[in-house]
Structure formats: structure tokens, C-alpha cells
């Protein structure tokens, strides 16, 4: 029988040791590797293609959710976390499993049993999609954005974003460090960026108000924004109204 390949991504050694210890008694599972941060965990997941990730949420470099955002494959996920009320509680127990630290051996085995059922159904893709959907439905504001660009991963602070431009199914994010293409919707960013700082000035543009240098009339009824770095962004009529309300002029 082919074993189930597992990877542990968790920054605390005692926590990794515990999972390993519990895994010893489950012969169906085979440990492919253990990693103490999101970057190396993501890389290993792409290389080793495990069936399941035991994934901590809070980790250096990339947290568990950001890792899932960047995954190219779709392994099953079992979250292990201590206390993450807003991130975890909305998951349905059966859709995505999570082990609340500290957890018992019984609880661990229960999680593995459920995992076997899910693997049988081949629901890995559904799991990652569910997590992604849950994250985009949440009300939480972003502090940073993770982006993959030519094989490298960039973590961009939201305050470094100058503006965003819609490009078909993608959004181009313009930052001080260059521009990054991300598969995401404008609506998502409109919702997850602080609306006092980021304003949707146009159907295709969201601008960080801090980089606006000037607002100039353009043609007869339109306006255009001049940004600190010299770029120009068009403003729609309704966008102008929002700008007026937010910036109070």
C-alpha cells in the first residue's frame, strides 16, 4: 500500500516533535520532511508533493494562510494552531481540519481518520479552494501582500503599495520595489485594504491616497491623478466623489 506523504511546517521544535511522535503510531503516514518557516515549507511542498500538510498558522516569513495562497498544488491541509480566533473559527470542522494546541493523541488520530476519508474522495483541491475562499470572504484587513514573481516570493507591506490596476483576471500591484502581477480581483482589494488609505478612483484603479501629488482636470468632465513618482491615474466621476468625501475638499 502506498503511504500517505506528510510534511510538517511549524516553527517550534517541541510542537514538531509532538506531531512526529503521534505519527509514529499511524503507519499509513510517512513523514517527508519538517520545516520551521513558511518559505522553506512552501518550497518543499512544491518539490516533494506531499498528500497532506500539518501547517501552523503563525510562522516567520510566510504565515500558514499566505503559504496556501501561493501553493501551486493542492495537498490536504490540517492546521495546527494555538489561538487564532478570527482565522480559524469560521472553518467547518469537516471542510478543513484544525488541531487546537495542545491537542491529545485521540484528537490527532481523529484528524488522521478524517484525512483518510478526504484523501479517498480526492478533495485536496476543494480544501485549498475552500481556505482561499474563506480568506477572501473574511473581513480582516491586509497588512501585507505575498506575491510570486519569476519563481521568487515577495512580501510587500501594504503601506508600500502605490496603486493597483485591473488587468483581466489579474491585478497589477505597483510598489516602490517594482510592479507585481497577482491573480486576484479588484473587489478583493477594495474590501481588504483600509478604505481610508486606498480609494477606488476608477473601475480599474485603486490608489493609495498618500502618494497622490495633484488632481488635475482632464478633457472636459474628467480628472486625472498625478502621483509622487510621476505616474498618472484616471479618475471616474464616482471616483472623484469618493475622493472628495475621503480627502474632504
Amino acid at each position: 500500500m502506498k503511504k500517505i506523504g506528510a510534511i510538517i511546517i511549524e516553527d517550534e521544535k517541541p510542537a514538531r516533535d509532538l506531531i512526529k511522535k503521534f505519527m509514529e503510531d499511524r503507519e499509513e503516514l510517512e513523514l517527508l520532511g519538517e520545516y520551521d518557516n513558511g518559505f522553506s515549507g512552501l518550497k518543499a511542498t512544491h518539490e516533494l508533493e506531499p498528500d497532506v500538510l500539518f501547517l501552523d498558522v503563525q510562522m516567520p516569513k510566510l504565515n500558514g494562510f499566505e503559504l496556501i495562497e501561493l501553493l501551486d498544488c493542492a495537498p490536504e491541509i490540517i492546521f495546527t494552531t494555538a489561538y487564532d480566533q478570527y482565522a480559524i473559527k469560521a472553518f467547518e470542522q469537516n471542510a478543513v481540519d484544525y488541531l487546537l494546541k495542545p491537542f491529545s493523541k485521540e484528537r490527532f488520530n481523529e484528524g488522521v481518520d478524517r484525512l483518510l476519508v478526504r484523501l479517498e474522495q480526492g478533495s485536496g483541491k476543494k480544501t485549498t479552494e475552500k481556505i482561499r475562499k474563506h480568506l477572501s470572504d473574511s473581513e480582516e484587513l491586509l497588512n501585507r501582500v505575498v506575491i510570486k514573481k519569476s519563481g521568487k516570493i515577495h512580501v510587500v507591506a501594504v503601506s508600500d503599495i502605490q496603486y493597483l490596476e485591473a488587468q483581466d483576471d489579474y491585478v497589477m500591484i505597483y510598489t516602490q520595489q517594482g510592479r507585481f502581477l497577482k491573480q486576484q480581483t479588484m473587489k478583493y482589494y477594495e474590501k481588504h485594504l483600509d478604505s481610508d488609505q486606498f480609494i477606488r478612483v476608477h473601475r480599474s484603479f485603486i490608489v493609495n491616497v498618500q502618494v497622490i501629488e495633484r488632481i488635475e482636470p482632464y478633457e472636459k468632465t474628467n480628472y486625472i491623478l498625478l502621483l509622487a513618482d510621476g505616474n498618472k491615474v484616471p479618475v471616474s466621476r464616482s471616483g472623484m466623489q469618493v475622493l472628495k468625501d475621503k480627502l474632504d475638499f
Binding site: P14, D17, L18, A82, Y83, L100, K101, P102
Partner: peptide
């Protein structure tokens, strides 16, 4: 912080074995 507390308890639970 409860986060600290639960994570510490988890470490302890691991150490009880090792």
C-alpha cells in the same frame, strides 16, 4: 497572552514524552 499560554502548554505536552 493566551497565544503564549496555549503554545507553552503544547510544548510541555511534547516534553512530557521526550
Amino acid at each position: 497572552n493566551p497565544h503564549f499560554l496555549f503554545n507553552s502548554l503544547n510544548s510541555i505536552s511534547s516534553l512530557t514524552m521526550s
